[in-house]
């Protein structure tokens, strides 16, 4: 049970922890107080308990596809939030302190949603073993190890980002956010395929022999790059589409910000 717990918890924690460390580093970059983190985590944890407790109801919605659809919807919402966060970060890169409230709320919501989605699965897993005393120790130890590895990677990753030079830090964070966001598009597409809302094709390739998804490196790539060992054509297209859209928008924002027109863009957006 230990390995199962480790893999399950690690996968969920790693995704949330990496997003959290990127956003935390960016929060520090813009000089925001890190209080929003507590709010976001509390909201996320409460939300994941609520979601985990009502997952049975959710599953039965939309002809049994509620789970897939809700998860996909959350992925898309997080994608949108990351896009907005990226643009706001670019606007603030010269320390302009614009829309900091909006930025803070977007970050809090993104972290809360990510925590909610990942946390609910851990919650369901934990309640499944609530009464199985004989495997409880193993499950708990595994969960601790998984969470420990996940948060450790998150913490080290945070210090890695914070240690970068200021300008490079922003660029690296934007690239990472874009990759994470693209990965969310891919996952959402897969969920919609699973729900038969999108046509599914055969996998485009299979790299599971090269880099299995359930290995530690595989998990890391999954959380950071949206790695999938055998994605379908549609999933890959969604990944690339999400990647390009975000990259393009961020690039356009970047190009426009130092000039006078930067203000117009921000007004349009607001």
């Amino acid at each position: 049970m230990l390995l199962t717990s480790v893999i399950l918890v690690l996968r969920e924690v790693l995704e949330a922890a990496l997003l959290l460390s990127i956003l935390l580093a960016m929060s520090q970059y813009t000089g925001l107080a890190a209080r929003w983190i507590l709010m976001a985590l509390a909201g996320g944890i409460l939300g994941s308990i609520a979601y985990g407790a009502s997952i049975g109801t959710v599953s039965e919605m939309f002809e049994g596809m509620g789970q897939e659809l809700l998860n996909a919807a959350m992925q898309f919402v997080i994608y949108g939030l990351l896009l907005v966060i990226g643009m706001l970060l670019i606007w603030n890169r010269d320390g302009k302190q614009q829309y900091l409230k909006l930025l803070q709320w977007c970050m809090a919501l993104a972290v809360a949603l990510a925590t909610l989605r990942e946390g609910s699965e851990v919650y369901v897993y934990m309640i499944a073993f609530r009464h199985q005393i004989d495997s409880l120790q193993s499950v708990m130890l595994g969960a601790l190890i998984g969470a420990g590895i996940g948060f450790s990677i998150g913490a080290l990753f945070y210090y890695l980002l914070v240690g970068l030079a200021r300008k490079r830090r922003l660029v690296v964070a934007l690239v990472l956010l874009t990759l994470v966001a693209a990965g969310l598009c891919l996952q959402a597409t897969q969920l919609l395929e699973q729900a038969d809302w999108l046509p599914a094709g055969p996998p485009l390739w299979d790299s599971s022999a090269l880099l299995p998804e359930n290995s530690l490196v595989g998990q890391l790539c999954y959380a950071l790059l949206g790695y999938e060992a055998s994605p379908t054509l549609l999933a890959v297209s969604a990944y690339l589409g999400g990647l390009m859209l975000m990259a393009l928008l961020l690039w356009a924002t970047w190009m426009k910000t130092p000039s006078e027109s930067g203000r117009e863009v921000s007004n349009e957006f607001a």
Binding site: I145, G148, I149, F151, S152, I153, A155, L156, Y159
Partner: peptide, 12 residues
């Protein structure tokens, strides 16, 4: 935090 994270990672 950095040391504890490293130790945790390696040990775990």
């Amino acid at each position: 935090i950095a040391l504890l994270s490293t130790i945790t990672l390696v040990n775990f």
